[in-house]
Simulated scan of single mutants.
Amino acid sequence: MSDPTASPILKSSLVAKATLDPFLYCVYHKDAYPAAKDDSMEAPRQGDGQDFNPVAPYRMYHGDRIAGFPKHPHRGFETITATVEGIIDHSDSFGNAGRYGNGDLQWMTAGKGVVHAEMFPLVNKETHNHVRFFQIWINLPACSKMVEPSFAMFWAPQVPKWSPEDGLARATIFYGDYLLGGDAATGERQRNPNTSPKDSWAFDPEHDVAVIHIVLESGGSIPIPAAHGGSAINRVFYIVDGSSSGLTLNGFRVKGKMITVDASVDLTISMSDSSSSVDMLMLQGKPIGEPVSQSGPFVMNTPEEVKQAEADYKATQFGEWPWPRRDMVFAQDKGRFSLLDGNETVPPT
């Protein structure tokens, strides 16, 4: 049993650049794109055109006229795109597409291979086009590396939220069974209504995968129960906006941007009354525990498998690209939608 008086913090890092198994990668995109000047939805290039300039108000990334990531391949893992603000246009080599954002969650299993584009069109003419979202890569075990690709969309009204009565804390439970309540008498926990694609490592509840965006205002606090899988689970917090100054876990001061904790311990995360707000992302899950060999957008178990992925992509392009442009975007006035297997759906009102 863990000592309740001991610090739950196992490790702190000043730089938040690493993820722990089963996650491969996580990046927080925050860009202040201007209002659209016309119907082209293009963002003006700025300065010397550095696509990833960290001090620029916004980035073009690999986009030329429209910011974003034109068509590119993936194999062997999944992408989880958890949005906070702004719009993303998705298109892929299987004919699936979508416009989503403002709290929506997109989950894509690349499996044996898919090509997709993620673009940030300027849809607003009267106001700014701010974009904030998390792009998270979660690994697939060897038995699922070559499954058929799949695509799922969870609209913002379907994503559970949590906040205390004082309103000084907010949590968006993009994935996982935390802060959802349950039956205290039986110990049965309430399930998150959103379920990952069936081939995902996250699909099995025993793997205890969770993705939670937390915002703490001055004086706010949030309870995070111990992981269902206890110390067998990797649990990490990332400070993505604001400072960790004034932030404590079970009364222990937090230092740095990446905080690895003992997942078997119940947590109370608090912000002091004299501090400003802070945004955090919690990632947790049971490790897959398999070797990882990666080259760019291909993540396999061995270098030989990566070479095969590169050869397969060169030979097949993972299917024909069915869209008229490599940086596919949709009509400026089109609302959020999801096109899956030829069937279009829109968010619930």
Rank of each mutant, 00 (worst) to 15 (best):
K125P: 02
E126S: 10
E126T: 12
T127M: 09
N129Y: 00
V131L: 13
R132P: 00
F134N: 13
I136D: 15
W137Q: 15
I138G: 15
N139A: 14
C143V: 11
C143M: 03
S144F: 00
K145A: 00
E148K: 14
E148H: 07
P149Y: 02
S150M: 03
F151G: 01
A152I: 00
A152V: 04
M153W: 04
F154C: 04
F154V: 09
F154A: 10
F154Y: 05
F154W: 03
W155N: 03
A156F: 00
A156N: 06
P157R: 01
P157S: 02
Q158H: 13
K161L: 12
K161C: 08
K161G: 08
W162R: 04
S163R: 13
P164E: 08
D166R: 13
G167A: 12
G167F: 04
L168R: 15
L168P: 14
R170D: 15
R170W: 11
A171I: 10
T172R: 08
T172F: 02
T172E: 04
F174Q: 05
F174Y: 12
Y175W: 01
G176S: 07
G176K: 04
D177S: 05
D177P: 02
L179I: 05
L180D: 07
L180G: 10
L180P: 08
G182T: 03
A184Y: 05
A184G: 07
A184M: 04
G187N: 09
G187H: 04
G187P: 10
R189G: 01
R191H: 13
N192H: 10
P193T: 15
N194T: 12
T195G: 06
T195M: 11
S196H: 11
P197R: 01
K198N: 12
S200Q: 08
S200H: 11
D204P: 11
D204A: 14
P205G: 07
P205T: 01
H207Q: 01
A210S: 15
V211G: 02
I212N: 09
H213I: 06
H213P: 00
H213V: 11
L216M: 11
L216K: 01
E217A: 13
S218P: 15
G219T: 10
G219N: 14
G220L: 14
I222V: 15
P223K: 15
I224Y: 13
P225A: 08
A226T: 08
H228A: 14
G229M: 01
G229W: 02
A232F: 06
A232Q: 07
A232H: 07
N234Y: 02
R235W: 00
V236K: 03
V236Y: 06
V236P: 02
F237A: 11
F237H: 12
F237W: 06
F237T: 12
Y238D: 06
I239L: 13
V240N: 02
V240M: 05
D241M: 10
D241C: 08
G242M: 03
S243R: 13
S243E: 08
S244E: 10
S245F: 06
G246R: 12
L247M: 11
T248H: 11
T248W: 05
L249H: 07
N250H: 13
F252I: 08
R253Y: 00
V254R: 11
V254G: 10
K255L: 09
K255E: 08
K257H: 03
K257N: 04
M258Y: 03
T260D: 08
T260F: 07
V261H: 09
D262I: 03
A263E: 03
S264H: 06
V265N: 14
D266W: 14
D266A: 12
L267W: 09
I269V: 15
I269R: 14
M271F: 05
M271E: 09
